[in-house]
Structures are given as structure tokens and as C-alpha cells.
């Protein structure tokens, strides 16, 4: 077993665009669930809208990369409003089911051959990278140390992603220490009480849904930046993976989503190397493919254990548990 390469891959993946995209998506989910108490199970829909908005704007309409990102943001805002109008007045568990259904509707429409001209249906989109790469200020070459040695283009998408994460963190930090954030946390605890104090609960929930949704869409963009947009990626299980990352770090904390995303993908990459290798060595009674899939069983178990035994996550305060209700 090659421990060196497994460890190398793990550390490298902790700084991958996918990890960075998960940071943004989990941060968005923290706004939804951790601060506003909204059970959004449709994060995959926001991520899909971000990624498709970006790719279609470039491929079909020839937008520059930054305008394409704005399209993604606008798309997420519109989706949040469309989703919020009917659902924000519903009870929590209904909201969960509706959001997961809405995200599936989005995915099915992107995957459908009806819009093939723009979405390329099941095959997804690729080849939209030129515009973003042409804006790369980093000189040609390969930089970095150890596992984090990347080409100029690879650094560019990572650094840009981290820049968005920093912006997102700043926004969430500012908002959550303001009276606005106080109202939001109040809604999380008991929206009727907040309503009785003269706050427009619906408006605050909508604003939270939009902010978290935009963060999720940007996460989708960052993941898609260096790769491709494939509809099958945006299954409900993607939402649940983001949830796992969020709950791992701590839902109602600022850095919980960041830590959660890094740990989630670190562990996933580590297991992706370790488990097949163990199977090949004969230490696991299964094929190496099956062993690779075994990590998703562990994700499910981890999600269960977290919720049952440490709902506040790694960074959360025991008293400020996420699921008091």
C-alpha cells in the first residue's frame, strides 16, 4: 500500500475546487439552517443553477466569465424567490420535502432533452474555460509545495474560489452580528414570537434564503470552474453531502462550514485511496470498486452519528445545539 500517495492525494484534495465549492455551499446552508432554521434540502438545485447559469451564459450567449457569474447569482436569486413564495410559510418538514422536490425539478429540466440546445441534456456542458483562464493573472508554470503543487490555471480557480469564500465569510460575519442576524436567529428559535414583536418574518426568511442560495450557486460555479457541468452530479445526495459537511463543522458557527468541507473531502479522498488499496491487499472482503463505494456508507453513518450525538458539530457550543426544538 502506498501511504505516501494516499496522503498526498488527501492533502491535495483538501484544496480542490470541489472542497472550496463545498465551503461556499455549506456556508449558504449555514445561513439557511444554522441561523434561520430553514430546512433547505434543495441546495443541489442552487448549485446546479449556479453551474448551468455560468456555463450556458458563456457557451450559448458568449458572455465573459464575470458576467456569467452574475447570471448565476441572478439565477439563484430568482430560484430562491420562486421557491420561497410558496414554501416559506410552510412548516419545517414540509419545507424539506418541497425544497428537495424543487431541486429535482431543476435537475430534471436541465437533464431533459427539451432544452438540449442549451443544456446538452444528459451529457452536460464543458469547454467554457477560456474566458476565465484568459483573466488569469498568475504567470505560466507550476507552483507550490508538496501535495499542493498546481499549474497556474489550477491555482487561479482555487485562489478565486478562496476569494469568494473569504467574501462569503465576511458577509455572513457582518450579518450575523447585526440586529438583522438577531432577528434571523430569533426566527430560528420561534417565528411566532418574532412575529409578535412586529418583525416581518417572511421577509427575513426570504432574504436568508436568497443569501444562502447565492452562496450555494457560487459554490456550484467554483466546482464547475475547472471541470464540466453534468446533470447527474446534482442529485439529492449532493445536498446531503453538503449537509454532512455542514453538520460536521457546526451549523450555527462561522467557520464550521469551512472546516466541515475540508474535513469531509479530506476524509473522502483519504478513504478513496485507502479502501480500494485495502481491498487489493485482501484486507477487505470486497472488490476495490465496492471498497471505494464503502466510503459513502461511512458518510451515511457519520451523518447519523453526528446528528444523534454531536448535533452542534465540531466547532459548535454544546449549549447552542442545532436541534433544540
Amino acid at each position: 500500500m502506498n501511504w505516501g500517495s494516499i496522503l498526498d492525494n488527501t492533502l491535495s484534495f483538501m484544496l480542490s475546487p470541489e472542497t472550496i465549492g463545498f465551503m461556499l455551499a455549506a456556508l449558504g446552508l449555514a445561513v439557511h439552517f444554522g441561523y434561520a432554521g430553514l430546512l433547505n434540502f434543495g441546495m443541489a438545485g442552487f448549485m446546479a443553477i449556479g453551474a448551468y447559469g455560468y456555463a450556458i451564459s458563456i457557451l450559448s450567449f458568449g458572455f465573459p466569465w464575470w458576467a456569467a457569474m452574475l447570471v448565476s447569482i441572478v439565477g439563484a436569486v430568482i430560484f430562491a424567490i420562486l421557491l420561497g413564495i410558496p414554501t416559506l410559510k410552510l412548516r419545517g418538514d414540509y419545507l424539506a420535502i418541497v425544497t428537495i422536490a424543487a431541486a429535482e425539478i431543476v435537475r430534471l429540466l436541465f437533464q431533459s432533452r427539451v432544452f438540449d440546445e442549451w443544456t446538452n441534456s444528459a451529457d452536460g456542458l464543458g469547454g467554457y474555460h477560456d474566458s476565465f483562464r484568459s483573466a488569469n493573472p498568475i504567470p505560466e508554470g507550476t507552483f507550490g509545495i508538496g501535495p499542493w503543487e498546481f499549474t497556474s490555471d489550477q491555482w487561479w480557480s482555487r485562489l478565486f474560489g478562496l476569494f469568494l469564500v473569504a467574501l462569503g465569510l465576511l458577509l455572513v460575519w457582518l450579518l450575523m452580528r447585526s440586529p438583522w442576524g438577531r432577528v434571523l436567529k430569533g426566527i430560528r428559535e420561534d417565528e411566532d414570537a418574532v412575529r409578535s414583536l412586529g418583525k416581518n418574518v417572511y421577509l427575513y426568511k426570504m432574504q436568508a434564503l436568497i443569501i444562502g442560495g447565492v452562496l450555494g450557486a457560487l459554490g456550484g460555479v467554483v466546482i464547475a470552474l475547472p471541470s464540466a457541468v453534468i446533470p447527474q452530479y446534482y442529485l439529492p445526495s449532493l445536498t446531503f453531502f453538503v449537509w454532512t459537511a455542514l453538520l460536521l463543522g457546526g451549523a450555527a458557527t462561522l467557520f464550521g462550514p469551512i472546516l466541515g468541507a475540508v474535513l469531509y473531502w479530506g476524509v473522502m479522498a483519504f478513504l478513496a485511496g485507502l479502501l480500494p488499496a485495502m481491498a487489493n491487499e485482501g484486507w477487505l472482503p470486497m472488490s476495490s470498486t465496492a471498497a471505494g463505494n464503502f466510503r459513502f456508507v461511512l458518510v451515511g453513518l457519520a451523518l447519523m452519528l453526528l446528528v444523534a450525538f454531536r448535533p452542534q458539530g465540531l466547532l459548535g457550543n454544546k449549549k447552542e445545539m442545532t436541534f433544540v426544538k
Binding site: R182, K185, G186, R188, E189, D190, D192, A193, V194, S196, A252, K319, E320, M321, V324
Partner: peptide, 10 residues
């Protein structure tokens, strides 16, 4: 409210 609605984690 009849059953007090305190904001538990505030």
C-alpha cells in the same frame, strides 16, 4: 403567548 415562546438559544 399562553405557552411562553422564549428564544431558547438567544
Amino acid at each position: 403567548f399562553q405557552l411562553t415562546k422564549v428564544l431558547a438559544r438567544l
